[in-house]
Write a protein that binds this DNA or RNA. Structure first.
Lengths: 151, 151
DNA sequence: CAAGTGGGTTCATTTGTTGAACCCACTGTC
DNA sequence: GACAGTGGGTTCAACAAATGAACCCACTTG
């Protein structure tokens, strides 16, 4: 009766959902992308149970999104550093940010936080587009197909 | 000891994570975006427990991503139709697709499924960009800030 | 030698997921 | 008019996972 896993599913969304499909993982990753690295910092900032945090970080290391790196000896201490794969997850997080700010606040209200460029401090508005045409993607115009031979 | 909720969190990612933060919701939404509407179809296609599916669909209706619409009487039957808010979730799902296909298959392997345009059947490669400049977003160049008065 | 720091693990309680079985309203078939 | 089938659920017992609190350990600093 263990939780259903999708980590070997043929659909990319399913595999990502298997990892992001709990409430803590995306939030831990968010903090990591904004520079957080230490267990204590995550724990204090997120107010998460130490046991839960521990298992989430272990999973992220396991999946190759983070690396557990020793940053001092005597006593030995480690920090969690994002890998390339971990940094690439930012696109998913950024899409979530945009969707959240557009649809999860009551009309005429806005979230107190915004995403901005570090240097200019200008607000970022992200959007998902087709890489080639640069145009937004309408789900009604998309389909899933077998690679190679379109059925 | 109930599960921690983020549906009133000031961070947009947290609110979205609260909804997408389980393994079934993104997958149900994926099928819905590709046109699925009926309970039985979701259940057969996903091989999910009827109880779990039922609660997921109820949550999606509750949050305003879907509407439960009567499509026949005698006997009364309903189907689940995406709202505007539901359709807008496609950007998050598409970003997950891209991240999944780029990072969740072993080197030199590719997922058996691809995202494509319905008409031309050409492969879609999606990317997250800044709406104004059209340029990809590097997480190292971003920050979270309070809206209005940049601290 | 007591308190503090960083990074965890262990534990009991409670909540959520799972698969199987069941229910109900109706239709179509023998 | 009894029965199988369809669509859309609910109920149930068993098990897994999240939670918060307490605990542990290796060191440093006062």
């Amino acid at each position: 009766m263990r939780r259903t896993r999708f980590d070997t599913d043929p659909c990319p969304i399913a595999r990502v959902a298997d990892l992001f499909g709990d409430w803590w993982t995306p939030i831990v990753l968010r903090d990591a992308l904004f520079g957080m690295q230490r267990f204590e910092d995550f724990q204090k900032n997120l107010d998460v149970s130490r046991a839960t945090l521990s298992s989430r970080l272990a999973r992220l290391v396991d999946e190759g999104l983070m690396e557990r790196v020793e940053y001092q000896q005597n006593p030995v201490r480690h920090e969690y550093v994002l890998t390339e794969k971990g940094r690439a997850a930012s696109d998913v997080l950024i899409a979530m940010w945009r969707y959240g700010e557009d649809h999860f606040w009551p009309e005429r209200e806005q979230p107190p936080l915004e995403l901005a460029f570090r240097e200019s401090r200008a607000t970022v508005r992200a959007t998902v587009v087709d890489e080639i045409t640069g145009r937004p993607l309408d789900p009604d115009e998309l389909r899933m197909q077998r690679r190679g031979r379109p059925s």
